[in-house]
Design a protein around this nucleic acid. Structure first.
Lengths: 220, 220
DNA sequence: CCGGCTCTCCCCCGCGCGGCGGAGGCGGAT
DNA sequence: ATCCGCCTCCGCCGCGCGGGGGAGAGCCGG
């Protein structure tokens, strides 16, 4: 119908065979045109800058600069950046979250069939009103925000102090903590005092709040 | 190419005009066929059970049963459930998270253009390898887990008790809470006691932990 | 070798906290 | 009219907690 010019696509993947396969699939569609390839993240950034594609299929694992950073740089550096579809091998890849956070238009599994591939390219080229509105990016951003750089005091806690804080955040009393850690109650009090001092908390409740706010219990 | 049978679609929206508009858009595509309509969530469930569509366009806000619950029931009750695309008006709608959690194949904004709409229907009918793999549902599930169905006690808290708990979770002492709320310290103690009883907490620290775990402070 | 850090433990003291029971007012539901 | 839930306060009591100061043992690095 309305296709004065084809959708311009750039492929970024460190494996030549993958690029070839993708190019073959896309070449079969008259409305799609592969205008560039890149084997590294850095190369992807420069190729995109030259070729000005509509869509980029970006692999995550690449030498020098990974696909996430490349996506970040491309989106930050251009006035009218292309839609970037991040390509992953495993769907439980943690890169997925990063991809969303840095502004990828979508992501694609390598095992996707040809139909899904071309459908995806056409869809993201047209709009992102479907399936990936800002809300999902917000979701990803929240996920990232949930575990930010731990406030300095986390690093300053000694091993025992960390243990004690963890037990405090479990709602235990000093006596209970002492039993769990097999030390005297006085020792626990000492550690608690250190934790309060280092966290700037006035009492154990504030310390627990600090622990939660700092995502201190994230790795439990 | 390979279209022996058209993609069967059911529309669920309480506004007749919206259904008419969607039907008009989809009718223009030869490979899409609207096989049923529903004006409520309950109706959607039964219509889907009869019509056995490939794709359902499900509005979130509907009488009786909302689109989320309807989606849940449809996916739970059928052996080969259809792909369900949840339709929202605003992209920051909190329903988005729920939609993902209960297993929607995707979601769509009402302001999406016709191209995006039909593209979305075709895409979800074919596969969900793009844009919505399990990882994103995991993401949504995590988000939901962060603030799950508020443990019964949240609903049982009275207005004042909720206020007090919020102040407790800010690390305030009873006296400070009393000043903030402009009541006597004894009153605060009473409320604190009620909160402890209802949350099953032994002390204020455990109560604050419960508040965090329950996502009680989410709307702050 | 000595200073610094961590972990361990002790004393005393003051106080905020939580548990107990009681009381009055006020509004809605029965 | 009665009851019940909520909010408001009062007293008393015991205790866990936090602050202060001190002390010995092990370990590491200057």
């Amino acid at each position: 119908m309305t296709r004065p010019s084809p959708i311009r696509v750039v492929l970024a993947d460190d494996e030549r065979m993958v690029r070839t396969a993708l190019r073959a699939i896309l070449a079969a569609e008259p409305d799609l045109e592969v205008v560039g390839e890149a084997a590294t993240g850095a190369e992807a950034v420069s190729v995109v800058r030259e070729c000005r594609p509509d869509v980029v299929l970006m692999d995550v694992r690449m030498p020098e600069i990974d696909g996430i950073r490349a996506t970040e740089q491309i989106l930050a550096g251009l006035d009218a950046p292309p839609r970037i579809v991040v390509v992953t091998t495993f769907e439980n890849d943690s890169y997925v979250y990063d991809a969303l956070r840095v502004g990828a238009a979508g992501f694609l599994l390598k095992r996707a069939d040809a139909d899904a591939l071309v459908g995806a390219v056409r869809l993201v080229a047209r709009s992102d009103t479907l399936l990936f509105p800002a809300a999902v990016r917000t979701l990803a951003a929240e996920h990232a925000r949930a575990c930010p750089a731990p406030p300095q005091w986390v690093a300053r806690l000694t091993g025992r102090e960390s243990e004690v804080l963890r037990h405090m955040a479990a709602g235990l009393t000093n006596a209970e903590i002492a039993r769990r850690m097999e030390v005297g109650p006085a020792t626990v009090k000492t550690h608690v005092a250190s934790v309060l001092a280092k966290t700037g908390a006035r009492d154990r409740t504030q310390a627990v709040i600090a622990a939660y706010e700092a995502g201190f219990l994230r790795d439990r």
